[in-house]
Write a protein that binds this DNA or RNA. Structure first.
Lengths: 138, 138
DNA sequence: GAGCACTACATAGGTTGCCTATGTAATCTG
DNA sequence: CAGATTACATAGGCAACCTATGTAGTGCTC
């Protein structure tokens, strides 16, 4: 199978996976954001939007929700009064742990059902997705 | 990294990829459906919903849209007057080809930017996603 | 062969997750 | 200091889902 065919299949299957997970486990948009904050530390709205590859207004709204949930805090940036610093709170970190465990257990169980899929394969899949998303502005 | 961590990352990154693709290339829900019809041949609404892991009403609406676009046809099932048979039309097959080429080229280009990602890695990623989704009712 | 449970699909109504367009305030730049 | 740029917020709208519920056809059971 060619690269283009594979790449196209990758997208369709990824879409299917996301909806399947969202369906019976919940996958709010906020999960992606707190995951970014966990990985990169405190960030501004625009930076978050770029990392998550969504529009700035979308990120504004998403962060507002997270603030309401108490998973992040939003403070004015001391070095630039226009900007904001979004920081992961302790409860946010807890939530991230919970979500990760839920998703992890579930998906890992499915992977385990397929003896031909190894941990290495899983790592490869993640690496591929991560690679594709990296600076993939092209 | 543990399996659960990897699995959780897989979900988050898949979500990010899907939105990124949807953003600058369009990834309508119909794409998944005509892709299923291409793979499995004519199917009923409920069967499609199960394969795509969405609810039946969602699939009803999606198929209605596809009918309007002319990419599929919907006929009553001769063996069961309650049922419907959804069939991929020629224009639908053309559309599928177009979409696949667009997505494929785009994502394949991104993959090509990362010399450490091989075609085999890509194939592995697809296999992982496909495996996870297979009968993943658990 | 009448009633009942079940199945396949449609409709209604609501939520979430995004987007573009646009406004506002703060910061840089000539 | 005027104008461009940057960081964010607001408004309005659309696509893709969902659950709950209705309806018609099927199959079983007695």
């Amino acid at each position: 199978m060619s690269d283009t065919e594979l790449a196209s299949d990758l997208v369709v299957h990824a879409a299917r996976l996301v909806r399947a997970v969202r369906r019976d486990l919940e996958l709010p948009a906020g999960t992606r954001i707190i995951s970014l904050l966990d990985e990169h530390g405190p960030l501004g709205i625009t930076q978050l939007a770029e990392l998550d590859r969504c529009s700035q207004p979308t990120m504004s709204a998403a962060v507002a929700q997270l603030v309401e949930s108490g998973w992040v805090t939003k403070k004015p940036n001391p070095d630039d009064a226009r900007g904001t610093v979004v920081t992961l709170s302790d409860t946010g970190r807890d939530e991230l742990r919970r979500v990760r465990r839920r998703h992890g257990e579930r998906v890992a169980a499915l992977v385990a059902q397929h003896p031909d899929l190894t941990t290495e394969d899983l790592a490869t899949a993640v690496a591929v997705l991560r690679g594709i998303l990296q600076e993939g502005t092209s």
